[in-house]
Design a protein around this nucleic acid. Structure first.
Lengths: 167, 167
DNA sequence: GTATGTGCAAATCATTTGCATTCTC
DNA sequence: GAGAATGCAAATGATTTGCACATAC
């Protein structure tokens, strides 16, 4: 899966090591419960995909996931594409940004909600948390009669390194 | 086409008044200046595209723009696609969201910055302003050494109408 | 006049889909 | 078994690109 600049972000907690064995088992169990609850089947393919995602905290795209699965249990891209909406709906995955013409995802299950900072020069993505965003979401939803189900916030600009390099 | 800036929030489907003639002329002049400054040529095609966008405040996609231009001055989609990055860079246009597999845009020149609320059921997009977002952008950028150049915030959920209809 | 921009058609590329085969329940 | 899910290959659809011609400067 792809490189990520998360470690450079001071505001991101260091909960970002691989999940402990017990944690992974719990996460997988949650995914299986979701599938059963919805009447979907628990297949080896879906389990392999979910496990690959749950095992890391990187940003990734379909091709990287496909590659990562290849050695252990090859899964066709069609099945990966078919599994993604299920994983999003089950809450283990989220779309995070569009780049180079395709979508990038990240594990969200068990992680603290966070937003992204994108460097327009080096294209790296950084993470940060801003608690007031949840309040804005709630306030606007109340104000507009919406039942809110989530939000996304993104900032773009130049990272500290690229500001110096550029001009 | 889209909602007025003063509105705290409104459906993008609502009709809105066109910019006054003088306003449009000023907006077009700004776009021409941008092109000249960058050494790009001011062509009839670019002017027609910019004018079509500047004349309304709706959300739109490439196909709608193509159709809108057809009667007055047909422009190939290739040229429209080539003009879009210039218009974004010049600050008259912004990508707002991906839907049905393609990008949707809106005029930003001369409009107050705003965010979007998406109804997952009826798929309508509503607009709202939340001034604290600019502060979050600024604060996070300072905190992380970024030079921020913009942000995007989106909330999704169910609009008041769809909450009732659904469950 | 020269380089840039345009239109057209062909090419790309991510994602989706039809269908025969393989599994889960 | 029956109905779902998978893999493969073909289809789709948005966006991009090569190239010959038109046009801005």
């Amino acid at each position: 899966m792809g490189p990520r600049a998360e470690n450079q972000m001071s505001s991101v907690k260091k909960v970002e090591e691989k999940p402990a064995a017990g944690e992974l088992a719990e996460e997988m169990a949650a995914f299986r419960s979701y599938l059963k609850a919805k009447g979907f089947r628990v297949t080896r393919e879906r389990e392999a995909i979910a496990e690959a995602i749950l095992r890391n905290h990187e940003h990734f795209d379909v091709d990287e996931l496909f590659m990562a699965l290849r050695s252990k249990k090859p899964i066709s891209k069609a099945s990966i594409y078919r599994a993604i909406p299920l994983m999003i709906e089950s809450g283990i995955l989220a779309e995070v940004y569009l780049e180079d013409g395709h979508m990038h995802y990240e594990k969200v299950y068990g992680r603290e909600h966070h937003s992204h900072l994108r460097c327009l020069n080096c294209r790296r993505i950084f993470e940060f948390s801003a608690p007031e965003l949840a309040q804005v979401e709630k306030r606007i939803a109340r104000q507009e009669g919406f039942k809110s189900l989530g939000h996304k916030f993104e900032i773009w600009g130049l990272c500290s390194h690229c500001q110096v390099e550029k001009d």
